[in-house]
Simulated scan of single mutants.
Amino acid sequence: MHSPETVLGFDFGIKRVGVAMGNTMIGQATPLAVIQSTVNDARFAEIKALIDKWGPTKLVVGLPFHPDGAEHDMTARCRKFANQLNGRFNLPVVMVDERYSSAMIPAKRGELIDDRAAAIILQQYFDEYVPH
């Protein structure tokens, strides 16, 4: 039996990054934060603070595709973000197909849902990749 691992999940966006957390023992993702900085250094400083606080052993990043599975501009941006996370924090990064993650969340106009989208992405990782 493996010991429980803390995992942080990310919903990357140009304007905001949603963050969720969970652990492999419970297998339940929880919304954690919305990082609203668009400046890379500030954005990664906030991510570092979350990594320092929660001590994850793995990071999960949502990878968007068109409904037919084709890649688009954000697909490449998310891969770059995942590579930057790995390079800066030396943690393994898993990419998870995030098609429809934001569409699954009812939201009021102006409401930030990025952390909840990150939780859906992380939950998908737990459901598909972590043995129960």
Rank of each mutant, 00 (worst) to 15 (best):
M25W: 12
A103L: 13
D114A: 10
A45N: 13
D52N: 02
A107Q: 15
V19F: 10
L91K: 08
F65M: 03
H2C: 05
A119K: 04
M104F: 01
M95N: 04
I35A: 05
A45F: 00
L122A: 09
F44G: 11
G87K: 11
T24H: 02
D52C: 00
G13H: 05
R109E: 14
T57H: 10
N86A: 15
V19C: 03
L32A: 07
E46A: 12
L50P: 05
P4V: 08
N83A: 15
I121F: 11
V34I: 14
F81I: 07
I47V: 05
A49G: 01
C78W: 03
H72L: 05
Q28L: 12
H72S: 08
E128P: 06
A82N: 12
F126W: 06
N86W: 07
I51C: 01
A20P: 11
A117F: 11
E111R: 14
R43T: 00
T24A: 08
N40H: 09
D114G: 13
I120R: 08
T30A: 04
P131T: 08
K53P: 04
G22S: 03
T38V: 06
M95H: 03
G110R: 04
P31C: 00
G13S: 00
Q28E: 05
I113Y: 06
G13L: 08
L91Q: 11
F12W: 06
T24R: 01
G62H: 10
L50M: 14
G55Y: 03
A45D: 14
E111K: 03
A117G: 14
F89G: 07
A33C: 08
G55W: 06
D68Y: 02
L8N: 09
A82M: 15
